[in-house]
């Protein structure tokens, strides 16, 4: 463990908590893409199948359980409890266009052709594009609530910090995982224009409005 990965994990946890609180407190999931939340739940389920078979550390197991419970809880709130506030008219990204190619790629490009490894690879590739429905939805509505932009900033920062962690681990341990690194770079690049808008607008107190 290193400080970059720890801050990255905490940023990820913060993002998930921000979203959960936003939906729970406002009792509304307006402006939030349920499809992205479904994809994130799928990412955690396919990645953490070894939760009970492969103990790494207490921290590792506790965080995995928190991620699984909070992401599934968010999906539950969006599609059941506060379903009336779910904006399905703007959340129209075809996620099969993500899941199918990612599924195919995870069979073709992986470290080891075993079920657990292919599912882990699927989860890494899927996570890199899971935010697309959310970014697509914001581009359609042309704006995002400030709390949603804080969520996106924390979520985007987590994988950017993981990239720093991978550079650090490469130079200190000689460890690197090309699949995770390439997918992590794609994932972080997808946030770039949002990061620009967030820093130039939201941090100056303005509403996040995408150029229509």
């Amino acid at each position: 463990m290193n400080v970059f990965r720890l801050v990255g994990d905490l940023s990820h946890l913060l993002a998930i908590i921000i979203l959960l609180l936003k939906i729970w407190k406002t009792r509304s999931c307006a402006g939030v893409s349920g499809k992205s939340q479904i994809l994130f739940s799928l990412v955690f389920i396919t990645r953490y199948l070894d939760l009970f078979t492969n103990f790494i550390s207490v921290y590792n197991s506790v965080m995995k359980i928190i991620y699984l419970v909070t992401s599934l809880g968010t999906v539950y709130l969006m599609y059941f409890k506060f379903k009336a506030t779910y904006d399905s008219n703007h959340d129209t990204f075809r996620i099969e266009f993500l899941v199918v190619p990612v599924g195919g790629l995870s069979f073709l490009v992986n470290h080891d052709f075993t079920p657990l490894e292919i599912l882990w690879t699927f989860s890494i590739y899927l996570e890199s594009v899971a935010i697309l429905p959310q970014l697509f939805m914001i581009s359609k509505t042309g704006e995002a609530e400030t709390i949603t932009s804080h969520y996106l900033f924390a979520l985007g920062s987590y994988r950017a910090l993981y990239i720093v962690n991978w550079v650090y681990r490469y130079y200190t341990e000689g460890f690197f995982d090309l699949i995770a690194i390439v997918a992590g770079c794609v994932q972080t690049i997808l946030y770039c224009d949002f990061f620009y808008l967030y820093i130039t607008k939201v941090l100056k107190g303005k509403q996040l409005k995408l150029p229509a």
Binding site: D9, I56, Y67, H111
Partner: peptide, 10 residues
């Protein structure tokens, strides 16, 4: 080596 490739990252 790949054998002890324990996935210790979240």
């Amino acid at each position: 080596d790949l054998e002890e490739d324990t996935k210790d990252e979240l």
